[in-house]
């Protein structure tokens, strides 16, 4: 009797754990998981760009729609594992009824447990169809491309990449440094957007958006009070954005002004501050920094627009 009671209690505990697991799967996730920088985990996307703007924009929209379609298809069946779980409970209850009537049977319980296993397998498979949100930069880049599409030379393409796989990947460690306490700090360089375009006015535009981040690696430290060795976790130390722009100016159409009151070194444009500016050799080179972790597409577009203040259209001959 005690054996059956123990088995019954164990089955009840398993059923409760399984119920809450399946309930958790059935509900749509409200709180997304976060990474070390306390940012929510986003969909890691990498796009190689070498096409006309319309094709790229359409491709980006299609990719988003496909991800959404997979997620919606999964959402439709979200509650099915829980229903199968209750089907298993029903089968086990049949055995319970037999036992109450004085007959001993485990065959329905075995079936019920088989259904529970099936429910777990289905729940796990449905979870695979879940997707994280698209990064805001994905939409931002799309808007940049959309804005620049009419400025592109007819028949030419955008070239470059959009790398939204994450700024703290091991492959993006640019260098490491050690401090006096032998702690290692990693410096990340994530060139998340590289774009080259031949413009309608004959200029060639190159944009490079780089996120520079810093992270101190975990290390062991001896406690001054207890003398025990304790592991300190890795720590995110912040990041900043760099925007490198190069405009090869069409000399037939434009003359470059050496300076402009609306575009000069040290000037703040949106979230950016122009830190370097050069107009040598008929090329405008500038670097703009932003202490913010995120810069919106409006900031990038407005600094590009401001850069055109350096150009003075030559009079038609």
């Amino acid at each position: 009797m005690e054996t059956f009671l123990c088995a019954g209690v164990a089955l009840l505990v398993v059923a409760l754990i399984l119920f809450f697991y399946l309930l958790n799967t059935a509900r749509k996730k409200v709180t997304p998981s976060t990474n070390i920088a306390s940012k929510k985990d986003l969909l890691p996307v990498y796009l190689s760009l070498a096409d006309k703007p319309e094709s790229i924009i359409q491709g980006m929209e299609k990719l988003k729609a496909n991800v959404q379609k997979t997620e919606t298809a999964g959402d439709k069946w979200r509650w099915v594992p829980l229903i199968i779980f209750f089907g298993g409970v029903g089968l086990i209850l049949i055995d319970l009824v037999f036992d109450v009537l004085g007959y001993f049977s485990l065959i329905f319980t075995a079936g019920g447990i088989a259904l529970w296993i099936a429910a777990i397998v289905m729940a796990r498979s449905l979870r695979k169809s879940d997707s994280q949100d698209f990064p805001p930069r994905y939409n931002g880049t799309k808007k940049i491309l959309h804005t620049l599409r009419d400025d592109l030379r007819p028949g030419s393409t955008f070239l470059g990449h959009l790398d939204l796989t994450g700024s703290l990947l091991p492959t993006k460690v640019a260098r490491t440094a050690k401090d006096s306490q032998d702690r290692t700090t990693e410096y990340f360089r994530d060139e998340w957007l590289a774009l080259k375009a031949k413009l309608y006015d004959g200029n060639i535009l190159r944009i490079s958006a780089i996120q520079k981040s810093k992270k101190r690696k975990s290390y062991w430290k001896r406690s001054r009070i207890s003398g025990k060795m304790k592991m300190k976790p890795e720590k995110y130390k912040g990041s900043e954005q760099d925007l490198k722009v190069r405009i090869v100016v069409n000399p037939e159409l434009y003359k470059i002004e050496s300076s402009s009151p609306t575009f000069k070194q040290g000037l703040n444009v949106g979230k950016f501050t122009i830190s370097q500016l050069s107009t040598d050799g008929g090329i405008i080179n500038f670097v703009a920094n932003s202490p913010f972790e995120e810069v919106e597409h409006e900031n990038i577009l407005s600094i590009l627009q401001s850069a055109y203040a350096l150009l003075k259209r030559k009079a038609a001959t």
């Binding site: 996307v45 096409d51 169809s129």
Partner: peptide
């Protein structure tokens, strides 16, 4: 089977 395959998140748009 009715759930479509998750799209590849590394895409190339190439003319």
């Amino acid at each position: 089977t009715s759930i479509p395959k998750k799209p590849e998140l590394k895409a190339s748009f190439q003319d």
